[in-house]
Design a protein around this nucleic acid. Structure first.
Lengths: 191, 191
DNA sequence: GTCTATAATACGATAGAC
DNA sequence: GTCTATCGTATTATAGAC
């Protein structure tokens, strides 16, 4: 059977690392908030904190893939679909009290120069999201190369705007980015 | 006299937090690499790690303000100036072995939900860079409001692209973002 | 499989000699 | 002002009962 306690530990890890980052989040804190004892943690994740963080990144990556897919399939036109996605994202971040944004960016930054395994796991997550956006943009008439570049800008702008909105405690950066991205997509349509 | 040892401590802090983030960087490591003893650190920064991190963020903020200003004053046309800035940035990040990118983003993420003082210090840094870009864009014919939105996108895209390039260990994300931003600025020129 | 107690180590911060 | 030794408390990880 699929262990529910394992999932609880992973989700708690996601929440805490989202707010505090990788190194600031202690195993004891994860255990306390998830209600699991230390023995369980090392039973499910024998390699300890790194293995747990990898599971958290992969869990978040899949969840966001689902979010992106559901919006992009619901709205046919690429520019409108991306605008919708960004609008929803801005609302989610604001509603969370500017704590949402996912644990991946924090983990990516803290591990980029110090932990190859975590770095690659984060890179894979970004790549998976970019691929989804790039494929959608191609249906709007962009070449494969141009769609890939636009998707990269999109991921970069989203990650950056989340950081700016959290630092400013304001939805404005996310909203401004949404508006300018929309402008870019309309300008370069089938370019 | 202006203490050189104080500056050494600050610069070492910038370098280490740039690679590892705030919580992963220990005071002992900063002391070891800067050659300063623990007593000196608490003499110059009586409030400890937080005060030191604030000094590091402000130091980096001013340095980057200088970088932006020097490029934007050297190149008259806004779109060309921004393209030049992004190209230089991509080279710097690659040359550093994908370790550069500044300590601010890592500190911003780790402190956004847990430390108001650090959060505001990071926000001020982002705001100062945005203001410089926005002012330059206004000279290119954009309205104040549109210039501000574009500058926000610019900062967001740059911060995000640095994270993507570091995670991918490739200059491509930064280069792709530079190209698409250039396209956007040419599309919407005096729009 | 599940849990507790504890080991080994690193942290930030402080006290006090010089 | 400059430095060292140390305190108290976190951390990750492990050992071993049940």
């Amino acid at each position: 059977m699929m262990s529910t306690k394992r999932d609880q530990i992973i989700e708690t890890t996601c929440q805490l690392m989202e707010m505090q980052g990788y190194h600031a989040t202690g195993l004891n804190q994860i255990l306390a908030e998830s209600g699991a004892p230390k023995g369980s943690l090392y039973y499910y994740f024998p390699k300890g904190k790194e293995e747990l963080a990898i599971a958290a990144v992969e869990h978040t990556s899949r969840a966001i893939q689902g979010n992106i897919n559901s919006v992009l399939t619901a709205v046919p036109e690429p520019a409108a679909a991306i605008k919708t996605f960004l609008t929803i994202l801005a609302e989610k971040v604001a509603e969370s009290g500017y704590q949402a944004g996912g644990p991946i960016t924090a983990i990516a930054l803290e591990s980029a120069s110090t932990n190859e395994t975590l770095r690659e796991t984060c890179h894979d997550a970004y790549q998976s999201w970019q691929d989804i956006f790039a494929q959608k943009l191609q249906t709007g008439g962009y070449s494969a190369a141009h769609a890939a570049r636009l998707a990269t800008l999109l991921i970069a702008a989203i990650e950056g705007a989340i950081i700016l909105s959290r630092s400013a405690r304001s939805p404005r950066p996310l909203q401004d980015v949404a508006q300018e991205i929309d402008l870019l997509l309309k300008c370069t349509h089938s370019g």
